[in-house]
Design a binder for these strands. Sequence first.
DNA 1: ATTCGCAAAGTTTTT
DNA 2: CTTTGCGAAT
Length: 786
Amino acid sequence: MPVASVQKILTPLNDAQRKAVMHLEGPLLMLAGPGSGKTRVITHRIAYLISQGVPARSILALTFTNKAADEMRNRLSTLVPGAPSWAGTFHRFCARLLRQHSSMVGLTENFSIYDTGDSRKVVKHAIETAKVNSQHYSADSLINQISFLKARGLTPADFEPRPGHPLDQIISRVYPEYQTQLKLANAVDFDDLLLHTVDLLRHNPELRESLDCMYQHVMVDEYQDTNHAQYQLIRLMNHNTQNLSVTGDPDQSIYGWRGADLNNILEFERDYPDAVIVRLEHNYRSTRSILSVADQLIENNLRRKPKKLLTDNQQGDAVRLVTYTSPREESDDIADNINLTVQQGGRSPSDFAIFYRANWLSRSLEHALRKLAIPYQIVNGHEFYQRREIKDVLAYLHLINNPRDNIAFERIVNVPSRKIGKVTLGRLRSYARTENICLLDAARKCGLIETISKGAATKVAKFVALFDELSVLEAEVVESIIQQVVAKTGYREWLIQDDSEEGHERAGNVDELIVSAQEFDLEHPEDGGLEAYLEQSALVSDTDAWEADANFVTLMTIHAAKGLEFPSVFIVGCEDGILPHERSQENDDEIEEERRLLFVGITRAQENLQLSRCVSRFKRGAFWPAIASRFLLELPRAEMKIVEPSSVDFVPNDDFSDQQVPFDVDPWMHEGIQINDSGPDTPEQQDELTEAGPSPAPPKPSRAASGKPDFPRLMTGTDLAKQAAGRTHTLEFQLGMRVEHDEYGQGTIAELSGTNIKRTATVDFDGIGSKRFRLAFCNLRIVSSG
DNA sequence: ATTCGCAAAGTTTTT
DNA sequence: CTTTGCGAAT
């Protein structure tokens, strides 16, 4: 590699960064504070290794999200074009490895990956089959326990119930049964991906050795969030060559609740006595004001490695600490704020992010942003895949890919309704259980099952015939499989049979899925296919859905915000019981993790930061008094800008801890009713008042399942928003409209589906035929409204 | 077998 | 305020 390239790699680095980048062999620990250029160091280090003759394919980079891996690949390709090193998440890496060696862990390569909902169903079955009395323990708590055991790398055989712990006794019966049923279904849960891989490497020294040899350099990002299973995996792959480099920040460890072990990073030096340690303490991201607040907060944690946050950046604006009377006011004020700043030309919507502790806190924010027509995106990637209709269609795909997938079978055997009921299914299940076969095979033999009546058997046989017809599709592109599944099963007609709005909404979501499959097919001409698609849909992470380049305000949980940065950040709901969360107050460790969470949120901000709390919050159908988060008292209030509301008369101070009575529900504060302010003088406000009722044109509800009046996620109704979003207003398009496209000329809108940025139109072009478009990304002009 | 209705419970955070 | 679950009626 030419000297010039090496210069390009090393020049943009500071001393500490350069030291890390030029570290060639042996274990390396990078303690990287927020905004210290961690990703840059990792990519430059990979580039440097390659420049020193290390083959790219021998470098393995494990990241926390797919997004981070993509980012890394992109940056690397500008430094070293065409370097084929592997970067991805632990779960993906393990899935890939397991598919190659599935038989060694009792699976076949087409195994299904179960999400938490699926796992919960399996646990429920396991509870029934194991005949334990679990009345005092919810299925959820059992799932958590099992997941926790798995995170610690404990198989059912490893688990020793402690005497005197009733829960342990139950676990010791349910856990093995749970694993048995998963194996029977040729399925794994998220934890299994790691656990099975560890198992695989433990019991196959040759394989372990060959991986060790293949990946000479292993890099792990966000090491503070690894759990014990991941730790074991890393150690297994570093037996011979200890070229392991990890980056992390103990102060940013926020996944303890799912088994992440802070000790992994705190004791790295003990595990690898030769480890070189590099501290990246120079912050390139935030103003002094912001860093000072972050610093003072995190100093309250005892379990940490003291670390300073240094910067050359300017002092910047004071961090604002605002008290609002209600979430409504909080949301409206933030939306106002964003709106004004954008109008003054200082910022664009994508400069802003709003963080919260729990997803439900986004509701009032959405409402407020919509009112002002501020374009926004909610980062909540799982939400779409949780919808019933999506899970149904995916269940068909799962069953096609893996006929042993019992959960998928149960989900769709009677969807759309085939008059196969609980009783028949129960008989099928017990037959399958005694014969030790999967449900589909049991269904094939339903004629032989004495308990099943002739009539029921015919229906089941018909379903099996339908399945066989579908299973032929396996090798086709995913879009085509879904299209045919939806058609041949009559699923679409079933959705819209009652012609309800909800039904059409659901059908629209299925279309959205088809579009996403289409995109997947296009993006994966070589490595695609049904199995890959299902794996991808199972392993998407929330942040993966985040679109960095779109010009939207970003709404996300603080967890999802990890690794990102924004010029202006709002953190809402800094209240006791929310942050720290009420379920995280049992011990100091949990409180410290909550404190780190706020630390992570604060350190995402580059220039402006506002922390806010409300004096009352709408919860469980009533307004409840809300106490300020204890963390707010730990901040350097003297250097912050404190804003109190003009009328906090009903809560004189923060000492409200004993009162557990909701306020009377105050009609003035209800969503959708504005009486405080001036009445509905302007047409715009009129719209606001009627928006909860039926309105003639779309906005389509974006949450079909909830049935509550909802509003489009992306509101681009004003010139401001159009300008800001830099794209056509996606909601204006109507069926039958005449539109014009640069390439295809004029045509008529034949079909509309999907919502928000996924809103898709099918256009019949004159003399050309029909084409599908994502409205947010195409250049369709309206010619006339048809 | 499905549908409807009511009651109770419950709201972290995510691969 | 939601969602989920269960039980009774059709």
